[in-house]
């Protein structure tokens, strides 16, 4: 029996979760929500994490009904993500690891998403679409490595959605992407947007510039409603993602596809992926907002796998890094 606690704070969510051999005992999270029209900045986000880390930690222990001495390993997000928020969260993880005399494991955030998705859905060897505010990657496992088959060459798909939500001054509560998704349901009229797929990669920055520039005047003139714009944006970017995911599945001969990351709880994306999977005779796996969106349990789960395969991190090496690619990690826990 191994109990792992995970500390996640790479973006605007501060999450701490506890996992006991594949069972989520607790997974509280506190989100830094900015006013409409504003994104979250590193310094303010780090302050948010410092202010809430200890109460969220207490909540995680209380809900799991365990004591610090019951924990076997402390896991924290090393990266990728925003530097200052990562460090603030890591400081708490390092301190409790020493106070409670427990080993510590540095976890790659992307690997956390993949391992949590695999745990929750029970998928065995899926092609993974990892879509969030900071990352957009199509990943498949091979030879002890999560290989990146395709990715964004500029901004993440979630960043594209978030920034368009700012143009429309949509609320950031619970998240800008959620509010785009709700508004898009009322969209009727499709506006053609730049569709940029380059081989296995995608690009969203040109599309974003285009829609940022056009949207205010098209809405002003009454030609399109904000709902039409959200609908058009979602249909276009999701179609791009499905295209590269399908190509990766064809290449790997994969019969499973798993969607992870914050954008992964978008029902329309899941629906489109479901259609593609069905046409190929493949199975779609996805999770809900509890596990798709950044959370502590996913870091605990990846750390749990690493720890059981014999990995621990020395205290002096428990640094954080803004850039940390998914394919840099040797996946010692899979065959």
């Amino acid at each position: 029996m191994v109990i792992a606690i995970g500390f996640e704070g790479s973006a605007n969510k501060l999450g701490i979760g506890i996992i006991k051999d594949g069972v989520v005992l607790s997974n509280p999270r506190h989100t830094y929500i900015t006013p409409p029209g504003q994104g979250f900045l590193p310094k303010d986000t780090a302050r948010h994490h410092r202010e809430h880390a200890l109460s969220v930690l207490q909540q995680a222990l209380d809900e799991a009904k365990i004591k610090p001495q019951d924990i076997d390993v402390i896991c924290y997000t090393k990266g990728p993500g925003m530097g200052a928020p990562l460090v603030s969260t890591a400081l708490v993880a390092r301190t409790v690891a020493q106070l409670w005399k427990k080993p510590i494991v540095a976890v790659n955030h992307c690997i956390g998403h993949i391992e949590m998705g695999r745990l929750i859905t029970g998928s065995k060897n899926p092609t993974v679409l990892y879509v969030s505010g900071g990352n957009t990657q199509v990943i498949a496992y091979s030879e002890r490595c999560y290989r990146i088959f395709g990715e964004t060459i500029d901004i993440a798909v979630g960043n594209c959605l978030d920034r368009f939500a700012r143009v429309l001054k949509l609320s950031n509560d619970p998240s800008p992407g959620y509010n785009i998704e709700q508004l898009a349901k009322q969209g009727q009229k499709y506006l053609e947007l730049p569709y940029v797929v380059k081989g296995m990669d995608v690009s969203f920055s040109g599309l974003l510039s285009f829609i940022e520039e056009k949207a205010p005047e098209l809405i002003e003139k009454g030609e399109y409603t904000p709902a039409d714009m959200c609908f058009s944006l979602q249909e276009t970017v999701f179609a791009m993602l499905i295209e590269i995911t399908e190509r990766a599945m064809a290449h790997c001969g994969s019969q499973e596809v798993l969607i992870v990351g914050g954008v992964g709880c978008n029902k329309r994306l899941q629906e489109m992926m479901g259609v593609m999977a069905e046409e190929r005779g493949a199975t779609l796996f996805a999770t809900d907002e509890r596990f798709c969106i950044d959370n502590g349990a996913m870091i605990a789960q990846a750390g749990w796998e690493m720890f059981r395969s014999g990995i621990t991190t020395e205290m002096k090496d428990t640094t954080c890094t803004q850039r940390f690619r998914t394919d840099e990690v040797e996946v010692t826990w899979r065959k």
């Binding site: 302050r47 410092r50 880390a53 200890l54 930690l57 207490q58 610090p68 460090v87 603030s88 400081l91 708490v92 301190t95 409790v96 106070l99 409670w100």
Partner: peptide, 13 residues
């Protein structure tokens, strides 16, 4: 700021 977080963590946990 970092020191304060560390000392608070010690006090609470």
């Amino acid at each position: 700021e970092h020191l304060r977080l560390v000392t608070e963590t010690m006090e609470k946990f």
